[in-house]
């Protein structure tokens, strides 16, 4: 699995209340949620974002509420991947569970700037900064999570396991 796109960069502690404010949580329609993604800290986000673009952020990305609406909104808006110094744990779980690509890589998260062109190879955990001509190695996922990602999320993983395919 690979991704390539332009970077939109954010700071530390981007919380789920700004990724998708609670006032929009009376719906779980993915497209509707996506149309409000990041509105409270970056009102131009949905206009600027091109499909495949990559978000890069600091520490504790996705902190706060357990709302799965947050990774779903970003995924549906067209974000191909989030690279951060660290992720809040529920956001981390939710992303993997719905097959949304995230990578923890402090070096890349610090070094990559807004507007950089970045290419990501998820299987190898390699992040290439095409603008700066640099390469970073993200932490690989444990085997269990790789299996789940390959199954395209938790639901398929559970069903395949029940059918004895895993």
């Amino acid at each position: 699995m690979k991704a390539k796109g332009t970077v939109l960069k954010y700071g530390d502690n981007v919380d789920t209340d700004v990724i998708i404010p609670a006032r929009y949580l009376n719906s779980f329609d993915a497209k509707e949620l996506a149309s409000h993604a990041m509105v409270d800290i970056d009102p131009t986000f949905t206009q600027r974002l091109k499909p495949g673009d990559i978000m890069v952020a600091g520490k504790n990305f996705g902190c706060g509420s357990s709302r799965e609406h947050a990774p779903l909104a970003l995924k549906t808006a067209g974000v191909s991947c989030v690279i951060a110094q660290s992720f809040a744990r529920i956001f981390y779980r939710n992303s993997l569970n719905i097959g949304f690509a995230i990578l923890e890589c402090p070096e890349a998260a610090k070094d990559i700037d807004e507007g950089d062109q970045v290419e990501v190879d998820f299987d190898a955990g390699v992040i290439k900064n095409l603008t700066k001509d640099k390469k970073y190695q993200a932490q690989p996922f444990p085997e269990f999570l790789q299996k789940m990602i390959q199954a395209n999320g938790l639901v398929n993983y559970v069903n395949q396991k029940r059918e004895g395919k895993l």
Binding site: R93, N94, N97, G153, L154
Partner: peptide
Amino acid sequence: TGVGTTDIATGMATGELWFK
């Protein structure tokens, strides 16, 4: 502990969940 929607759906269906 708090989890998301897919986790909770899995918990409701199977009574089990993965944890680190």
